[in-house]
């Protein structure tokens, strides 16, 4: 067959433009995951694909300016990473792929997970359901856990649901949660200062752009305060957090490229169901454990880890 080759070469004459919106900082492991995914699909940056990167670390509102550009420019696809999606809800002109830790239905960008029905689709990381699981795992690692600080960015979509799920889990497990909310990255330092004054056994940090950006300082804070810490994604753990439980972000972004490819080929995001992760990654940082003096009983915990950082 000759046509597809001709079609491809024709496509090659006009590279696809993808806008990448993120509230992370660069280097961005999620962007790397997505780029790898696109490369695996046969896209070559600079040849048939160009990325235009819009970063506003920890502050979705700062993206508004760039979002208004979407309506003017000729853009094939927007990929919004994490809370950046929050700023995108008004976009109707361009297909938007999201990777969200919150609930996209609650955010109002999709009608249902099975049939998004609009210009949005992507992945949700099931943060809500995992919230309780993280408390439980923290308890398994540190059985004497009785008071838990929950550090949460209230700007994050679905944050209240996540806090509620955490509270319920704590109640079942007989743990007293202490809610330390903050609003945006500027308030993070103040929130940590407040947490420092709380007499608690452990720290639970909700996965979110703000905390992701400052993951290293939060992990350092936890070690300094000798608090076993639990996070949402393994990136936190790699930055010094004790443990994390959640979907593999990089893998999620890698597989998001499948949808990007299908949308660029003309499929409607309205028909592409929102994907939920199948595999959850339990990561443990043994170095941090040693620093905290926690003895991880091999038979009880370590065998459950998918990723052990020595």
């Amino acid at each position: 067959m000759v046509w597809p080759v001709a079609a491809q070469s024709q496509e090659a004459t006009r590279p696809y433009r993808i806008f990448w919106f993120s509230t992370q900082t660069q280097p961005d492991p999620f962007l790397d995951g997505f780029r790898d995914g696109m490369r695996a699909r046969g896209y070559v940056e600079g040849k048939n694909l160009t990325f235009e990167l819009q970063y506003a670390p920890g502050d979705p509102e700062a993206l508004r300016q760039a979002i208004s550009e979407i309506k003017r420019g000729k853009i094939d696809l927007v990929v919004s990473s994490g809370p950046a999606t929050r700023a995108m809800t008004a976009v109707r002109e361009v297909p938007v792929l999201f990777a969200l830790s919150g609930d996209p239905v609650e955010l109002g960008i999709v009608k249902s997970l099975a049939q998004p029905g609009g210009n949005f689709t992507g992945s949700t990381f099931l943060s809500l359901e995992l919230a309780g699981k993280r408390v439980e795992l923290l308890r398994d690692i540190f059985p004497r856990l009785s008071t838990l600080i929950a550090l949460s960015n209230t700007n994050h979509p679905g944050e209240q649901s996540e806090w509620r799920a955490t509270r319920e889990a704590c109640q079942k497990l007989g743990i007293a949660p202490v809610y330390v909310p903050f609003s945006g990255p500027r308030e993070l330092e103040a929130a940590l200062a407040r947490a420092a004054n709380i007499h608690a056994d452990a720290l639970l940090v909700f996965p979110d752009a703000a905390t992701m950006v400052h993951r290293a300082s939060i992990a350092e804070f936890a070690i300094n305060r000798r608090l076993p810490s639990m996070f949402g994604w393994s990136e936190y753990c790699e930055a010094g957090g004790l443990a994390s439980y959640g979907a593999n972000q990089k893998a999620t972004y890698f597989s998001l490229a499948t949808y990007a490819d299908r949308i660029l080929r003309g499929e409607s995001p309205a028909d592409l169901p929102v994907v939920q992760p199948t595999n959850f990654e339990f990561a443990i940082n043994l170095g941090t454990a040693k620093l905290l003096g926690i003895d991880l009983d091999e038979s009880a915990i370590l065998f459950r880890a998918n990723k052990v950082i020595e």
């Binding site: 249902s112 099975a114 049939q115 949808y259 028909d271 169901p273 929102v274 994907v275």
Partner: peptide, 10 residues
């Protein structure tokens, strides 16, 4: 195509 499965009973 997993998306067909996830699309539900439509």
């Amino acid at each position: 195509d997993i998306s067909l499965v996830l699309r539900g009973g439509a």
